[in-house]
């Protein structure tokens, strides 16, 4: 079983392609849509998690690579600047997936990239610009 989270940047002419359908139907993958920003005739962005057997995930990725869309691993775009974090825990209740987490004693905040779905809620909340997302 393999999981892969990717950010797809879709040119306007590909917006109406059934990409998620094809990944499920033709490549037998589970697709979780983590975030989508799709408007007709505009550049769109889709953040998805693909999961399935390694060979199927690879085949799905090869399909995406053939579509002339920009593909980036999700984790690459998210930076948590630990040096800027004051460990106030302000962001913790806002994070819907627990990617921003505080330890048992409630003292130190940590960031788990694998849980982040790039919802950007923390960006509005953190007063110190600790989280940076670049798409």
């Amino acid at each position: 079983m393999k999981k892969k989270r990717v950010v797809l940047t879709l040119p306007p002419d590909l917006i109406e392609q059934p990409i998620v359908y094809n990944l499920i139907k033709n490549h037998d993958l589970m697709v979780s849509i983590l975030r989508a920003n799709i408007t007709p005739k505009e550049q769109g962005r889709l953040v998805i998690e693909l999961s399935g057997e390694k060979r199927k995930v690879d085949a799905g990725m090869a399909y995406l690579a053939g579509l002339e869309i920009e593909i980036q691993p999700l984790a690459q775009d998210i930076k948590w600047h630990e040096d800027r974090c004051i460990h106030c825990t302000f962001c913790v209740p806002t994070c819907p997936t627990g990617a921003l987490h505080r330890d048992e004693e409630g003292l130190q905040v940590s960031f788990n990239k694998d849980k982040c779905i790039a919802c950007e809620l923390c960006i509005k909340v953190c007063p110190y610009n600790v989280v940076e997302i670049q798409f």
Partner: peptide
């Protein structure tokens, strides 16, 4: 039940 967030840093 409500989740809480601190603004003042206890760690610091």
């Amino acid at each position: 039940k409500i989740n809480t967030g601190g603004i003042s840093s206890y760690a610091k």
